[in-house]
Amino acid sequence: MPGTQTRTIQVGIVGTGYAATRRAEAIQADDRSQLITIAGHKPDQIAAFAQTHGVSAVKSWQKLVERSDVDLVVICSANYEHEKIVRTALEYGKHVVVEYPLALGAIEAFELINLAKRQNKLLHVEHIELLSGIHQSIKAALPEVGIPFHVRSASLMSQQPAPEKWSYHREQFGFPLVGAVSRIHRLTDLFGKVATVSCQTRFWDSSKASGYFSSCLCIAHLRFTSGLLAEVIYGKGEAIWQTDRTLTIQGDRGALTIDGEQGKLTTAAGDRSLEVGSRRGLFAKDTAQVLDYLTIGTPIYVSLDSSFYALQVADAARRSAEIGETIEVE
């Protein structure tokens, strides 16, 4: 299957938001692929998206995955829809690219991975944070801190007022660290396997609509098999008054700090700024690697195994928060 696609890859996109727009631009800019159709939920947004990109629109994602002329389905919709769209697309014999998370539970994700293997089709879960200049700079500088023993990763976003959209809905977004599993994946990519997870979470329910929340806060403590201890903090909404996007790594020979898009390495020699690059163009890089894989068989930057493992850790955090106990990660 890798590298076997010789004709132009016909693509359908599910979604009309930011990620879908970046995907459409990347697909249309590459001679190996052609965007032929899109699907979404809101008729006005679907019509505008289709007109902008010069493609046809279908009434539902079900109609899109049924089309015999679609080779690759790119899923850029709400988290809760990922599992069922991926499953149906694979059953119809399509290659699939999906924004993280693959599913809202580890068991469901495992089933989808096995289905992709049985169908001999590509299933790629986007994790563009691993392609970012920030992540690459961290990896390059990490040996200079020596043996890491403590990590604090904070992703707090103040939003006043909180929007009534799927990303602020308990069932549609999922457990916070599952819906935002990239916060876990960055750490497992850098530091390997996790032994135990302990997690607590809190929601502030919205007074405007049932099922929605105005704020959430999730704090997980991870103990890696290496002995490294990590604190992962994720929160958003009206109760969060100060936005915080920082990552601090303490090692026995130095420390590394990322604050937004600024990086600093501290060692016995003093402080040194890190070049972290730009966040721009990551969806294009991801799309190009998918097309490389399908046409010439080049491996994609992230494996299904590593993506699934990050989801397993996030799912362990969910179970820990539910039962109030430390969970061993299998």
Rank of each mutant, 00 (worst) to 15 (best):
M1D: 11
A29L: 04
I296F: 04
R7W: 05
D315G: 00
D30I: 14
A78K: 13
P161Y: 06
V276R: 01
V14D: 04
K59Q: 14
Q172E: 07
V73I: 15
V329F: 10
E261G: 10
V98G: 04
K94A: 02
Q159R: 15
L291Q: 00
P2W: 04
V58Y: 07
R279N: 15
D252K: 11
T201Q: 13
G227L: 07
G54K: 06
A317I: 03
R22T: 13
H135A: 03
Q262F: 11
V329Y: 05
G324E: 00
H41L: 15
K94H: 06
S307H: 04
L222N: 05
S198A: 13
D305N: 12
R202I: 12
G251M: 10
E108G: 06
A57Q: 12
T52F: 06
A26D: 09
R318D: 04
R318G: 03
A269Y: 11
S210I: 12
Q160D: 08
S306V: 02
Q136H: 11
F308C: 02
L294P: 05
R32E: 04
A26K: 03
V302P: 00
G192L: 12
Q119N: 08
Y80W: 15
S320H: 01
F49C: 05
E111R: 09
L282D: 00
D69W: 12
V276T: 10
E83N: 13
L156Y: 07
E129A: 12
A154G: 05
A140S: 10
F308H: 10
L274Y: 07
T201N: 10
V97E: 02
A195Q: 14
A48G: 13
I258W: 07
A89R: 06
F283M: 09
G227I: 04
G263R: 00
F175I: 00
H169D: 04
L35Y: 08
A321N: 01
A116K: 01
A50Y: 09
A316R: 01
A268G: 10
S273F: 11
L156A: 02
Y309H: 02
F213Q: 00
V290M: 05
A57P: 02
R170Y: 10
A103C: 01
D31R: 15
I113F: 07
S68I: 11
G146P: 02
V194M: 04
V181F: 14
G254V: 11
N114F: 01
G192V: 09
T246A: 07
